[in-house]
């Protein structure tokens, strides 16, 4: 198996007395696509936020290529450049055009020239079919378009891993596909990704490994076919049940 990129070692995360992640451990390997599923409030989004040091943890350790991830350390900005993140609510910067949204961090953080950043941004926008929107403002775009821009913005920093936090949850159903297609094409290029999603058929298609979290712990993990076709634990079975419907039997 390839090298471990992110090592999550027995982490504890709580808000006051409310334990959200309870001694959770997980290794993410280079080139791997890990999909995290679980009921709402199980801690899966919090896990992503901890990996990017947007939340402090109260115990355990997360390392990236052996380097500790800590929101207060001096090197955190360098680490975060290696870890791209895409949010449910897109979080484009509303006061900047699409192009400026994408090249802001490459220019300010990586000190790349405007021309260089711009060239790459345009190539990436073209790949997701949004080159004609480069001078628009975020509010002129649909949700699906905004989310594709947000992915491009993260990609333009050349991250080693991408974190997707329920990126289609705020979208209208007909826009979900266009965003998922972008992520699928990234998977084909061996990008390392950690994806939190509720789209089960997408999870099955994109994942190398499925992680099922409930109540802050990993309850089950396995390949997509193991997890979806033969879930071992009762909790996973119950969770998967919620996505299927039985035919209504009308009362006589």
């Amino acid at each position: 198996m390839s090298e471990v990129l992110i090592k999550i070692d027995n982490i504890l995360k709580k808000y006051d007395d409310n334990v959200v992640l309870d001694g959770l451990s997980l290794d993410i390997h280079e080139g791997e696509v890990v999909v995290v599923v679980g009921p709402s409030g199980c801690g899966k989004s919090t896990l992503l936020r901890c990996i990017n040091a947007l939340e402090p943890i109260q115990g355990g350790m997360i390392t990236f290529r052996g380097e500790k991830i800590d929101g207060r350390s001096k090197t955190i900005t360098a680490l975060r450049q290696k870890i791209g993140m895409v949010f449910q609510s897109y979080e484009l910067f509303p006061h900047k055009t699409i192009l400026d949204n994408i090249i802001l961090a490459p220019m300010k953080v990586q000190k790349r020239s405007r021309a260089d950043a711009r060239k790459e941004a345009e190539e990436l926008l073209d790949r997701v079919g949004l080159l004609d929107k480069k001078d628009s403002f975020p509010r002129q775009l649909s949700g699906g378009q905004k989310q594709r821009v947000a992915i491009v913005r993260a990609l333009c920093m050349h991250p080693d891993v991408l974190l997707f936090d329920e990126v289609t949850a705020a979208l209208d159903p007909e826009m979900v596909r266009e965003v998922l297609d972008v992520i699928l094409s990234l998977a084909k290029q061996w990008k390392t990704m950690v994806i939190v999603t509720h789209e089960m058929s997408f999870a099955r298609a994109v994942a190398d490994r499925i992680i099922f979290i409930d109540q802050g712990k990993i309850v089950e993990e396995g390949t997509p076919s193991e997890f979806f076709d033969h879930p071992k634990t009762e909790r996973a079975q119950a969770f998967l049940q919620t996505f299927t419907f039985d035919k209504v039997e009308k009362e006589a």
């Binding site: 360098a78 975060r80 949010f87 979080e91 802001l104 961090a105």
Partner: peptide, 16 residues
């Protein structure tokens, strides 16, 4: 606050 987080996740410093 998530606007700040999205900027931080791009590797920007607090001041930036």
């Amino acid at each position: 606050p998530i606007q700040t987080e999205s900027a931080l996740s791009l590797g920007m410093s607090r001041t930036q």
